[in-house]
Amino acid sequence: MMKTTFPAYRPLALAVLAAAALALVPLIGPRAVVQDLFGILCLLVLALNWNMLAGFAGLVSVGQQAFVGIGAYAMFAAVILFGLDPLAGVLLGGLVAMALAVPVACFVFRLNGAYFAIGTWVAAEIARLGLGQWKALGGGTGTSLPKGTTRDMLGVGPVKEWLGVSSAAASDIVLYWLALGLVLVTLGMSWAFLRSRMGLGLQAIRDNAMAARSVGVDPVRLKALVFLLTAFGTGLCGGLLFIQITRITPDAAFSLLDWTAFVLFVVVIGGIGTLPGPIVGVVVFYALERLLSDYGSAYLIVLGLFGIAVMLFARRGIWGSLSGRTGLELLPLGHRAPDPAPALRP
């Protein structure tokens, strides 16, 4: 098959162009569009993180809602109990999620394969039920951010003056830009990580664990690193999401459907184990949601059937099949073989 790889700068230029276009949306688009896109960008962050876990590190977790919820609760605690800025709370949320990922990892890394998946789910349930006991944050019925929290949030004032919009709209715009930034950073870091020596080791483990170990790759260390880093990214995203939602309950913060099931379908439909896959998946997801929004539960049925169909007929997802068929590669992860030594050249 002909392999037509883009020159390295082309996808980069494309990415910069797309990012710039997205960054300009709040300047021209109505507020509802900004809010919608914020949700989509957050879903993409979650998908990029889950794809690193399941697609590259082989850690099939169905408990990532644990870190969304922990990040969200840490942000709420920072604002309500310590009076911090919500954005400081988001950062704290990421750090707390990463810190709590350590004991979770100590438990789930003892289990393999299917047991691992169930173990992560149980861990998320324990976090949900445990935080439901935190009376200062409303216990099982939850609580809301104090009025005016987002109005005083870092960056809202300047944006409000600059664009001449209301405080509420300005906070939406700030959150939107942060979510976009998080997408770009996650994407960039994932790419850099996977191209690095460690990322190469990770993909070697995925392709053949025995062979990888024989050349000195330590699977547990690498997988644990990915687990912690994705917990950080997922926790940050949880904090951001719940600033906009403004109300938290254990059931919403640790929702299996919202923060793991949708994410799973996005990644699988787009193409698991490829970097552009989640982006394609999120676009399809959004289109389906728009198309079927009037039919209630039919939307979820179609999504489920779509996911099953992908697993049956095109296991590499939309992007994986497309790139396999056309040889098209954006964000390629392969390395070119090194030049033969000069002495061997004819």
């Binding site: 399941a54 698991i272 209630g296 539960s297 979820l300 999504l303 489920g304």
Partner: peptide, 22 residues
């Protein structure tokens, strides 16, 4: 690979749940 059966049954779970709901 444990991922495909996991995802298929997960999809099935969502389909059955929402089918019953409808």
């Amino acid at each position: 690979d444990i991922l495909p059966p996991l995802l298929v049954t997960f999809g099935l779970s969502v389909v059955i749940q929402n089918g019953l709901l409808a």
